[in-house]
Design a protein around this nucleic acid. Structure first.
Lengths: 239, 239
DNA sequence: GTCTATAGTCGGATAGAC
DNA sequence: GTCTATCCGACTATAGAC
């Protein structure tokens, strides 16, 4: 369990690069499936088809590889949601700029797109290992979680919060006080609708009698979450 | 890691009873906090202030204690939600009996009460250890999860599904086909709103700027979830 | 039913050859 | 940068005294 901090500085060697990549891929998979402690360095090395001693060499130890896995996830999420997040952020900023609260035609579609992306990610098979790892982190958070909160997850969440506020209280500035709390709770409940399909996936599949979540199922869930979000937010606004 | 199946049959001895209870309590706490493999028998025994060898004696081994923890959780949830679930079930059955679809005055309040209970459980500090354990189980499900699906969780979920269907399609019989799928997805999204405060608690607290979820916060979340559920379900129905 | 002592196993880290 | 060999700590399970 002893962890050594002095990570040997890896170079830009093509061989080492491939090794690191394979190890990180195995780390995301195995740590996510079985947890940190249940995953041995030997198992990681086997899965990556690499010698176990290289974990120490490239990442300083097991813990270092674990953190590297989270950085890779942040990177992967960025590739998946980055463009939606950025374009949404830009458009929202522009709308806030000229004070026009064009809820129906501008803000709601932005939210739709964001939620579609989020649902797609939460239901995607690809994100399974990511999410498994993240959910485990929530159980007892460490610096690994910070990597994500400062990354795509933090961006996405605060964006949803801002959108919700803009839709609920059009024209007003940034939320504060009770309105801010309300917007945050609303954003969380809205995201929770998608999250359940990831974190309680086994239970959801059981209840739905499905064995997996196929493309048509994803579309179904996306439509429902979008509809629900609109119902929830339409409530308080003038129709 | 060798696990022995032949559990020695424990008797109705008062001493052994206390020992088992202490061990189960420690198991829920420690397994939930750190995971199965990261929790040693020694740590469990220390927390329970009991000799480590007694784990083998009473539960047949570490794995046996783990399963016992889930049975205890099912029992605890039953004590917490059992009465609400039963009374709701009875009332719903009565309503289905005479075919009267008294949505506004009868069904929605039933749903409110159920959701309040669920939110209370998801946000309660008490349920933290339970939920942590359950969420870890979802990551790679074993027979331990079945204990819960056959218990209170299964009951609660199918009850919410039936309620949702009864509210959306009043007067019709049990859901089937697309309507059944829709009711299940709706129920999941509704429960997900509360679930997020438990499984992504660290992230939620971070976003809300809270350090814990106090009684007033619980009430706030309950109100929001109730309101959202009504908005979502009101959508399709005639007003 | 509880305790002490220990056997047997596994895992993380690392030295040193290539 | 990669590999082999090995050390050492930590863990589960259990035998046997009380």
């Amino acid at each position: 369990m002893r962890e050594t901090a002095p990570t040997p500085p890896p170079q830009g060697d093509p061989r080492g690069e491939a090794t690191r990549e394979a190890l990180v891929r195995a780390a995301i998979e195995l740590f996510g499936l079985h947890g940190y402690h249940a995953t041995s360095n030997r198992a990681l090395a086997d899965a990556a088809q690499v010698n176990a001693a290289l974990i120490g060499y490239h990442f300083g130890g097991k813990r270092g590889l674990y953190l590297a896995a989270f950085q890779a996830i942040a990177h992967g999420m960025g590739r998946r949601l980055g463009s939606v997040i950025e374009s949404t952020e830009a458009e929202l900023a522009a709308l806030e700029e000229d004070g026009r609260a064009d809820v129906e035609e501008r803000l709601l579609p932005l939210l739709d797109r964001l939620l579609d992306g989020f649902v797609a990610m939460m239901t995607a098979e690809e994100s399974g290992p990511w999410a498994r790892l993240i959910v485990r982190e929530q159980a007892d958070p460490s610096e690994a979680l910070d990597i994500l909160l400062r990354g795509p997850i933090g961006h996405l969440a605060s964006l949803v919060i801002r959108l919700v506020h803009a839709i609920e209280e059009p024209g007003t500035g940034p939320a504060s006080g009770a309105a801010a709390t309300r917007a945050r709770i609303l954003a969380l409940t809205i995201m929770g609708q998608a999250l359940i399909f990831r974190v309680a996936r086994a239970t959801a599949l059981h209840l739905l009698g499905w064995s997996e979540i196929g493309p048509r199922d994803v579309a179904l869930i996306q439509r429902q979450v979008r509809e629900n979000a609109r119902s929830i937010l339409r409530k308080g606004r003038p129709t």
